[in-house]
Structures are given as C-alpha cells and as structure tokens.
Design a protein around this nucleic acid. Sequence first.
DNA 1: CAGAATCCACTCGGATACTG
DNA 2: CAGTATCCGAGTGGATTCTG
Lengths: 126, 126
Amino acid sequence: MCIGDGAQARACTVRQVLDRIGGKWSIGIVVEASQGPVRFTELERRLDGISRRMLTLTLRNLERDGLLERTVYPTVPPKVEYTATPMAAELYETLVTLTNWAERHRDEIATARAEYDARESTVPAG
Amino acid sequence: MCIGDGAQARACTVRQVLDRIGGKWSIGIVVEASQGPVRFTELERRLDGISRRMLTLTLRNLERDGLLERTVYPTVPPKVEYTATPMAAELYETLVTLTNWAERHRDEIATARAEYDARESTVPAG
DNA sequence: CAGAATCCACTCGGATACTG
DNA sequence: CAGTATCCGAGTGGATTCTG
C-alpha cells in the first residue's frame, strides 16, 4: 500500500496515521500515557466523558500498534499500567506542529465558517 | 473550548484539526487541490473509489472551513474549480512531518501488530 | 458537467449490566 | 480494579437515480 512517491501516495501515508490516531480518544490517551504510567481507572477519570467500552477498545488498538505498553501486576485487586512507547512520544512531538497550525488559523477558520453559513442560509434571491 | 494549556488542552486542539481532516477523503482532496485548480470530475477520477456523494460532502466541508475555494464559471456545461487556500497548503506542509514519522516507524508498527495478533490468537493455555 | 436526493450497510461510540 | 458482554442510536460512506 501507498505505492510510488506521488501526491496521492503521500496522502495515503497520512491516512494510515490518521486511521491509527483519528479515533475520538486516541490522542488524549497517548498524551496521558506520555507523562508516565497510568492505570485504567485513572485514565477513565482524566478523559472526561469516555465510556469504559471505548477506553478498553482504544487502549487495545494503541497497544496493538505498539504505541502503548500494557503491564499487568498479578495482584488482588488487579493493577494494570499503560505507558507510552518512545514511538508514541515521538508521534506526539510531531502533533505539536499540528497544534501550532490550528492556533495560527483558529480565527481564520471560524471566520470562514461564519461566512459560509451566512451565505448558505441566505437564498441568493436575486 | 480547549481551555488552559495542560496536556489535555493541547490534545483537544489536535482533535479539532483531526475532526476537520480526519474524513476518509479530506487529505486526498487537499493534496490534489494544492497542485492547482481541479474540477469536480477530475477529482472523481483521481481519488480512486470515491463516490459522488462523498466527494460533494467532503468538498463542502473543506470549503466551509476555508481550506478550499470554489469557483463557478457560469457556462454551459457548468464548470467548477476547487483550489486549496494558503491555509490548506500550510496544513499539508505540517502533515509532511506526520508522513515522516509514519515512514520512520512503518516496520516497528507492523512488527508490533504481528506480535500482538500472534499473542492474542494464542490462548495462553499454559 | 456538477451536483442533489434517496436508500441502505456498516461502523463508531455511548449506556448499562455483569465478572474474576 | 480492570475489564467483558450486550444493546442501541447516530453518523459515515457507498450505490443509484435524477436534474439544470
């Protein structure tokens, strides 16, 4: 997949990254786990609004892609810790450039939206 | 939204960007439109597998966010051109860092997946 | 040519209840 | 504590048909 080095090939590569971190909670989890080991319930508290189901699913996917490491302590009650791998930390570094872009153009986007919505709701009646 | 400057605030900002470009076809369209003006049917051909419906929807969203400019030539038959705005071009520049990350870790991710899948399919009956 | 409209399948994600 | 299992609604996206 993503053959050649044309424009669409690069677009394809970007898409693969987005498939990995595009989920609603992925980024938030990676960020938390980048600060150090976090436990399941701790994540549940810090990611406001996440359901148990989605937390589990997202954790599994991130673990599968090698972005998170899962450590089980065979104690009673059970204790499981999640830590971001170096690869994940590096990923978040590159996401910072995205944040910068978003902050630079925040107003521009808001304006564009407002103008678009105003245009669309106004039937150009003449 | 995205209040404060903590880790989750930055994660929130990233999410907003992803909401904008996370769609299945958004990146591909931005890439094509960055090379110069493109027409509707031209995009339909270049984005292999896209449906008319999704092309229209994605174009509208990108236009609404100010990433694409839509120019209508009142001719018969109609002619409409889409061009990436400077803001969109700048966005794609930052996405290149993502591509680099993906290429650096392509093998690492593949390996992680293979190992994970091998582990999961093997019941540790032990 | 550049769409708008309609129908449908599938996935994402939330709510809830149960368990080792 | 750290999940798993089940149900359900909403949104995403494909296929097809119709039109100025």
